[in-house]
Structures are given as C-alpha cells and as structure tokens.
Design a protein around this nucleic acid. Structure first.
Lengths: 218, 218
DNA sequence: TTCTGCCCTTGACGCAGGTCAATACTAAAT
DNA sequence: ATTTAGTATTGACCTGCGTCAAGGGCAGAA
C-alpha cells in the first residue's frame, strides 16, 4: 500500500490533500519493526516521532522494580512520541512492536516545516488534546475497574462489540494492555469460559450473544 | 495582587511582556471559588478554560459507582480545562476548589485571538505536551507505587523535600490526591508516626531528618 | 531429534488496601 | 447551648490480584 494513502488514514493527517500527502510522504521514512522489536527506550534521546501504519505498538513506562506499565497500546493511524518535538528531547515512554509493524517516521525538522501550516497546527493541537483525554480516561480505567471490566472495555474500544473476534495479540500482551499479569488474565479467561460467556480457541474469540447488552459502559 | 503579575507567573504565559499581559488580563475574568465550590462538572458544556491563580483545585473523573478518581491536584500557575477549546465542547473531568481559590478564566473567542500569535502557539503546544507527560507519569504513579511511596512522592512534587511542612489541605483531600481513601491514609499516618518517621499536629507536618536521603526518586 | 526458550496454565499463598461500621472531634449554624 | 454535618480515627473483616513455583505445549535452532 502506498504511503500517501496511509497518511490520509492517520489521525494527524486525516483530510489532507493528495498533493500535501505526497509531500509529507517524501519527508519521512517507513520503518519495519518485526514482532518484539524495540522502537525506542524511555529516557533515550530522539528527534523523530512516529505514525503507526500497520501492526500494534505497546507504549509503556518502567517502574524502578522493573515492572512495565503499559500506558497505551497503539493502533494503526495513531501518532506517538510526538512529545519529543518540543522542549524535552528524551522519550517519556518506551515503545515495542507487539506484532509485526510498519511505522512512518518524521523528524523534528520536517515536522517544524509542517507546523508552519495553519490547518496542520490546528489538527496537531486537536490530536494532543485527544491524547490528553485518552490518558485521563486510562487513569480511571486502571484504577476504578476490575480486570474483567477492563478486558471487555479493551475489546470494545479496540475492535468494537462483536460476537466473534480474530485476536492478533498474545494473551500476555492483552494482559499487559489491560493492566494485569498473564496469570490473572488466564484465570479470568478460565472463569469466563466455564460460565459459558466466552470461547477462545487459537486466535478466535467468541462472545456469547446477549452478553454485550447487559453492559453499559459510561 | 494584580492580574498581570499572576499571568506572568503561570505556565502558559511565562515570559510574556507587560504589555501583552495587560491585554490578556483585560480579556478574561477573575473568579473566586470558596473551598468546596464546584467549578465545572464532567460532561458539562463549557466555553472557557482556567488558570489557577491561588489555592488548589482537584480535577477528577467519576466512576459509574460514584467513586471519584483524582486525575490531578492543580497548583497555582497551572492551566486546566483547555481541552474544551478544540473539537469537544464538554469537560472531560470535573473540578472543585479544595481550598479557597482564585481563577482566571478565558473564553474560546479570546483564546483564539491569542492563538494567532506564533510564540503563544508554541508555548501552548509545549504546555499540552507537559500535561501529557504528567498524565503518563501519573498512570505509573498510581499503578506501580504503594500508598506510602505515593504519599512521599506527593509531598516531594508539591512542596519539595523539607523537614517541615505547613499543609493547607485536609487529610481526605490528600488521600484522594494520592489515590486512596481516608481510612487507609489515616492508618499510614499512624504507622509512620509510631515509627517516628513523621509528626503531624494540626497543619504542621514534620519529617524526620535523614528520611529523604534514604529515598531515591528517579 | 533433542535442546532451548517462550508462552500459557494452574495451584498455593499472602497481603495491601478497600468496605462497613462505630465513635470521637471539631466548627458552623440555629 | 445544642443540633448538624463534615472530618478523622480505629477496629474487624474480606477479597482481588499479585507472587512464587511448577509443569505442559509448541516452535525454532542446532
């Protein structure tokens, strides 16, 4: 797939013209990151930010004791590490590809050129604000809901409410995304399976009909 | 104290000229909020954002079960609810004054005028990014540290490492700020007092010499 | 084919911290 | 002076979820 198309699907460049997309595409580079590849490390110096084109990337902070707290599991179209562009020149989180991924990377200088454009600036600010809302929401998510609730909210927000999913992630990665550990997540799955609420074979997850209806999020 | 001076001490308008400060001061209004006053409610429509001039304001989200999760305890000079300025016209959090406070409020229209200024835009974007870092840090704070650790980090980040503090907040507000409940916080205080680590009488809190040295925060 | 490493699962266990409830201590209101 | 209401403390209790440890399944490397 060509880069221009992908850019136009991203949150930052949505609604951009073909011509502009072409120019931007020429300014950055496409990076391929196989599953498990570290993209950047918290505290590391950097001068580029990224747009996830394909795959998924885990953004996390490390606690002093070595545990990793997932701040966000990014999906295609999302921008991250844009914080590097102002003031601080070190990444505030680490990023690794949890599935084979492709990223579009743009450096500070190119970005500053873009910022010269009024419409782009407005778009950029609105992306920053969306992120802020996301993070405030994640604080609520992690502190006010239990693991089961978080699991279903995770499904809902990442794939929507369906009866059947094809999950491209390992269970350990999901556990991390919902803020728990594999053991606890495994026990949750076991319990839900016994209750007949879900069925999970290979990468196919099925949720019993009727289930979503009982839940009211927000 | 005059508004211009206060604006120049805020994170958003730091380094602004006297002349510009005067113009901005004329665009907004000063609001007085006595302790306990609700400033705005999550979900409510609004067209203004605020700069805290004096006092402290608690920003929180409400869980479906009614619990309130404090997202941030704002201090003077900080800007909040700026998220209202783009796209979404509803506040994503609620805000109440936890001590008698004064706020400077600016509406959307005035803000847009300011945004016309290049330097201001850059400053604004950098404030947004600082916030983003704060929120990512708060996720780590709330999920990776225990209550004791959070308490000392709270003291450190709000007042610095001192041997003696004059705490203007109720214990319940501190409990909320550090992500716990009054009972648990009270027990922590009791334990630390018995250990001789702290002494707390009225609003005066004393930390035993030597204590901070044992801690290494980042 | 065997080894090595990673995922996933399952059991046993412990504990930090939340819930519930009772009581005292204010300080403001009547 | 007495009611009222918010804050604080303390005890008894309980539970969700993390830790530790062990074992099974599977894939890629040698």
């Amino acid at each position: 797939m060509n880069i221009e198309k992908l850019l136009k699907d991203s949150e930052l460049f949505s609604g951009i013209s073909d011509e502009a997309a072409g120019r931007i595409a020429a300014m950055g580079t496409i990076i391929t990151a196989p599953q498990g590849r570290m993209i950047f490390l918290e505290g590391e110096k950097g001068q580029s930010f990224y747009i996830l084109v394909e795959g998924s990337v885990r953004l996390f902070k490390s606690a002093p004791d070595g545990r990793e707290i997932t701040v966000k599991l990014a999906s295609p179209g999302e921008i991250f590490a844009e914080v590097i562009l102002f003031e601080k020149d070190r990444y505030p989180v680490s990023a690794t590809a949890v599935t084979d991924s492709r990223l579009f990377s743009l450096n500070k200088a190119s970005f500053n050129t873009l910022l010269g454009n009024e419409a782009f600036r407005a778009e950029f600010i609105s992306v920053l604000m969306k992120k802020q809302r996301y993070l405030a929401g994640r604080i609520l998510y992690l502190t006010a809901y239990d693991v089961e609730e978080r699991f279903f909210r995770f499904l809902d927000s990442h794939y929507g409410r369906k009866a059947s999913y094809d999950i491209p992630l390992s269970k350990k990665d999901i556990a991390s995304a919902i803020g728990t550990i594999p053991e606890t997540f495994s026990r949750l799955i076991q319990r839900l399976t016994q209750l007949g609420t879900i069925r999970w074979e290979g990468s196919r997850l099925e949720i019993k009909e009727e289930f979503w209806k009982k839940r009211d999020y927000d």
